[in-house]
């Protein structure tokens, strides 16, 4: 009964789930997975308890950065339909409390990573939080349509951190995985922004479809996908991955090019507005998530067999 009556009441305080929602749990899935893969493919055995702790630290750090992002973006979140019900714009959590929460979790995640793993992993973890907050959220997001190209690096750190947690160093393979996620991010995110650009426009966020139009964005989705596929094959060329990964990267890459091509050749009017309600972009967005999961899964499988 109370759930129905007070569902939108802000004066009664936040639900426990609101504090979890501040960590953007849906985004964390990919972070946890890529971080865990970085740890699994490392050529060093790590105690399972320390390994789980390292993955937990990556998860909490990413969540903490998300909470700080929600604190900073509370004004535009309130304008966008997709984000208006988040705990801060909805008034269930005070902005300063969310900021403190994000900072405390950030500090603890880095310190525990140092304690459980090593200084290198803790340093890269701290850099990834700082990059997401200062470079992406505060500096780039509201200034340039290239925000996601450079800011995407923040989401590319987890495999490097996972590797560093196990080995205490950074070598070529985690750097290649970092670059793969970096180049994967623009076609992934721009596919989403093609059908969510109305929200960004209202909030004044200069996403590529808002600034350059949908046609330009479709070309960029296609070009970045074309650049991504050879990059995913680079671990094979450097002798860092075997045929299992090579076959998977080729097949998955061809699939991604197919979906990007469908985005590019979507029926559109003279202004580039989709006549199919951006159905190909929705498919490409969904495929891009599956793509990264399977690609990194193949990388781990290749190492294990």
């Amino acid at each position: 009964m109370s759930d129905t009556v007070f569902a939108n009441s802000t004066e009664l305080g936040a639900e426990a789930s609101d504090w979890i929602a501040l960590l953007k749990p849906r985004v964390l899935t990919l972070v946890v997975f890529t971080g865990a893969i970085g740890l699994v493919i490392a050529p060093v055995h790590m105690n399972p308890i320390l390994a789980i702790t390292a993955i937990l630290c990556i998860t909490v750090a990413a969540g903490a950065a998300g909470a700080i992002n929600m604190w900073y973006d509370r004004d535009i979140d309130a304008i966008m339909k997709r984000t208006a019900t988040r705990p801060i714009p909805a008034g269930r959590i005070q902005p300063n409390a969310a900021l403190a929460y994000g900072i405390v979790l950030s500090v603890f995640s880095v310190l525990v990573m140092w304690l459980a793993a090593n200084f290198v992993a803790a340093t890269v973890l701290a850099i990834s939080i700082a990059f997401y907050v200062f470079v992406y959220t505060i500096w780039l997001k509201r200034r340039t349509p290239q925000n996601i190209v450079i800011g995407g690096a923040a989401g590319a750190f987890p495999p490097v951190i996972g590797w560093a947690a196990a080995t205490g160093s950074i070598s070529l393979l985690p750097i290649l995985l970092f670059l793969i996620v970096l180049v994967w991010t623009p076609p992934h995110f721009w596919s989403l922004s093609l059908y969510a650009s109305g929200d960004y426009e209202r909030a004044g966020v200069p996403m590529l479809p808002v600034v350059k139009g949908a046609r330009h964005t479709r070309w960029n989705v296609f070009i970045y996908t074309l650049a991504l596929v050879p990059l995913t094959l680079s671990p094979v060329f450097f002798g860092l991955a075997g045929w299992v990964y090579g076959v998977a990267a080729t097949a998955l890459g061809l699939g991604f090019i197919y979906y990007a091509w469908r985005v590019l050749s979507d029926s559109q009017d003279a202004r580039g507005v989709s006549l199919t309600k951006d159905a190909p972009a929705k498919l490409a967005f969904r495929y891009s998530i599956l793509y990264l999961f399977l690609l990194f899964g193949a990388c781990a499988l290749d190492r294990l067999i």
Binding site: A14, E15, S17, W19, I20, L56, A116
Partner: peptide
């Protein structure tokens, strides 16, 4: 409803602190 929400937050905090202590102990 206020008490239900506060109880939920307190349980979450308890779980987080308890989990953190166990984690440090295990490490």
């Amino acid at each position: 409803e206020f008490k239900r929400r506060r109880r939920g937050r307190n349980y979450l905090l308890l779980a987080a602190l308890g989990g953190f202590c166990l984690l440090i102990y295990a490490i």
